[in-house]
Computed example of a mutant assay.
Amino acid sequence: MHRQIAGKLTGPVTKWIVLVGAIVLVGIMAPLNGKLIDVQNNEASSWLPQSAESTKVVEQLTGTVDPNDIPTLLVYHRDSGLTTADLAAMDEDAKEIEQIKGVTAQGAFSPNEAKALIASGAKVPPLLSDDDKVAFVAFTFNFGKNGWQDIPDAADKVRELSKIDGVDVHLAGFGGQASDASEAFEGIDTNLIFITLLVVIVILLFTYRSPVLWVLPIISAGFSYMISGGVVYLLAKYADLTVNGQSQSILGILVIGAGTDYALLLIARYREELRRHEDRHEAMAFALHRAAPAILASAATVVIGMLCLVFADLNSTAGLGPVLAVGVGVTFLIMVT
């Protein structure tokens, strides 16, 4: 970084202007960062190659089949065979399931209903095994684009109302899979960030041996994460960037890790310059002037490497590159200012 630019950024007055500007930017971007989950695309097609046959099938069916439909099965099993009372209880379960928000207007079909339809000549599956040990209630969830967030609550309601003494009941089909996956990944980005922060704080305490100095890199990393998340949200909403739960989780970890690394380089140089200059602003100006090129080279290398992922065949990986590149770029700007 040019000596005069570094001097202006670290001046007695301009340093506060830069800080206020960063706080204002965080205030604008933080709400957008909180909405990042709203623009996530966790559908199967977002994880598959664009050239995959399954992806092409989804695209062809989009005009005739709602891509947000989630076919779901409620599986009942009794070792000794399901009784007439069990089948009647399934009829009642089907009626209650139809009242759950998110279940489509087609309703829920029980084995008795399927049997009646078959008797009338309709070609539908019987929903009851030949040995009467296993039966299904079939229905479809549709929460629009919010399926990933909304299906766990609806699945819990289905599990709660479908209890029959002596009968094993399991939620299956795409609905059961989506519910289990959503619950497994619920809060994973927050947990990963907190764990990463804890590890980084411990490292900084050992490195700086100061109860206060570690706070500055952590705050700067927090600023970087909020701003980069807001930028990614805008790109996902208006530039068709693919963002999923995986990329959002990795973004937070990368920003904290890269930001801490850049802070270590800059603060180490600043400590050296304090031995040569009595004025702390002058020391920081020289530190920034000498450390910024190395930090820029490091950040640019990572950004270019991440952007290479754009050429990946997997949609999820191709979208991951720009997301992480934005995170590293924003982190560099925050750490050197």
Rank of each mutant, 00 (worst) to 15 (best):
F194Y: 15
A263C: 06
L87D: 05
A44E: 15
L324C: 07
L128V: 10
N191G: 15
A85V: 13
G305S: 02
H281A: 06
Y238R: 02
A122F: 13
T64K: 13
L198V: 13
T14W: 15
M306G: 00
E160P: 05
Y76C: 02
Q246W: 06
G173P: 07
L36R: 01
I151F: 02
D79M: 07
V57Q: 10
T14L: 12
P322I: 01
A300W: 12
I227W: 07
A114N: 03
G187V: 09
G187F: 10
L314N: 04
A221N: 12
D240Y: 11
A299L: 00
P322H: 02
P71I: 04
H2V: 11
G63Y: 05
D131Y: 04
K15Y: 07
A44G: 07
L127F: 12
H2K: 14
L127C: 03
G63L: 03
E43D: 14
A105L: 11
A291C: 13
A268K: 15
F332R: 00
L216I: 13
E92L: 06
Q106V: 09
G121T: 09
L205E: 07
N42G: 11
N244G: 12
G121M: 09
L48S: 15
D91Q: 07
L25V: 03
K101I: 11
G252I: 03
K115T: 05
S45T: 14
T104A: 09
F223Q: 00
L9W: 09
I219T: 11
D91M: 04
A52M: 04
V212T: 13
A119S: 12
L274E: 11
K56C: 06
N315A: 15
K115M: 06
T317L: 15
I256A: 14
L235W: 03
